[in-house]
Amino acid sequence: MDNTLFFTYLIIMAGTTYLIRAVPFSLIKGKIKNRFVQSFLYYIPFTVLACMTLPSALYATDSILSAAVGLLAGMIAAILGRGLLTVSIISCVFVFITELIMNFIK
């Protein structure tokens, strides 16, 4: 692609993406006292994650079944107190095993 065009676009793209993150992060210095806003900010990490995970995660692997098995295995491991990395690996392994079995059956 033409360099002038590329860099014009890149600056707009990277500039917008950077500012939308860094400006609120840098300018909000104090603790927010408003109870509603505090509650909103308490729930937002969980809702962001939940929305990104379902239903998208079901379509992340080669089959919905393997994805569901992987997620379920991860969920059980997490509730039993395993850490992030362990849970993540358990999910991958269960997807892998499920797909191996599915390939074998086919």
Partner: peptide, 13 residues
């Protein structure tokens, strides 16, 4: 395929 679920496994965790 297996690696793709890893990131979601973390969210679940």
């Amino acid at each position: 395929s297996a690696l793709c679920i890893g990131i979601y496994g973390m969210f679940v965790a």
